[in-house]
Write a protein that binds this DNA or RNA. Structure first.
Lengths: 141, 141
DNA sequence: TTTGATGCAAACGGTTTGCACTTAT
DNA sequence: ATAAGTGCAAACCGTTTGCATCAAA
């Protein structure tokens, strides 16, 4: 818990109970939730929290670089990830699940090795993979 | 022009003047326009075209696989690409420009070579790179 | 002719904003 | 005390929808 408060303080954000609950929730789950997903969870413990606060907290945390907003969307909604370490995402076309992909991309990716491509300076790469997740692949057999 | 009509017919879409104008516009430009971008261009020649028609045409073409909707957004707006050939996208953090990246990824990417990762079947990969484009990199020096 | 497309305006849904009230420091 | 954050509702904006009109076959 103190760790969550510290993370907020380090980013210059007052550690209010709402913000603590939001960041804690996002940190504990690994399913790339949308703002509504986080709200629906947090509101159980803090019935008075508003969606606006959840939105504002997620936006602030993204801007400060404490969490990241993914480029892909779940049914039109932005989704968030508390893990900043370089990793990619797999999106299942059947069940819509988003799965973290950790790969030794740095070792294999010519672009990351070079740090630039076609004269453009590459600071970050996010790869989005589409296909059938292992669960859905099993079911379809 | 006949080529555009043929592309529409092949997808089972009536080649109306509006649809021809939309697909032609998207095919001629390489700047990954949003629906509004396309509308603003097309409306000059067809002053009566409505945004709803542009949206519907772009949606139909995406669904039929004739064009693609990118995963990234320009200021919250969906953007489209008439090029389906495997390629990636570079997004400049300074000017917001989206640049096509063609790389021999197939030869280097362990994931594409394997066709699966962590048991998930990978059918497609879109890589999004973030950084400074060559133009902005020059300016900043 | 008749089936499907268009244009308009209203609805929709995720996100943001304005403002009076509340809370952390 | 006071600066910052919250909750509510309304506004916002990209996108979709319903429906009467219109055009391609």
């Amino acid at each position: 818990m103190n760790k969550i408060i510290e993370r907020l303080r380090n980013r210059g954000l007052k550690p209010t109970s709402q913000r603590i609950a939001v960041l804690k929730n996002l940190t504990e789950r690994r399913d790339h939730p949308t703002a509504s997903d986080v709200y629906n969870d947090v509101v159980k413990k803090y019935p008075t929290i508003s969606k606006a606060t959840v939105y504002s907290t997620l936006k602030l945390l993204s801007e400060k670089g404490e969490i990241q907003e993914l480029s892909i969307r779940k049914m039109g909604e932005a989704c968030f990830d508390s893990i900043l370490e370089l990793h990619h995402h797999f999106l299942c076309r059947e069940c819509g699940k988003i799965i973290d992909i950790y790969t030794n991309c740095r070792n294999n990716c010519v672009i990351i090795k070079a740090g630039e491509i076609d004269g453009n300076i590459v600071e970050e790469i996010q790869a989005y993979m589409y296909g059938l997740c292992s669960d859905c692949a099993k079911k379809n057999n």
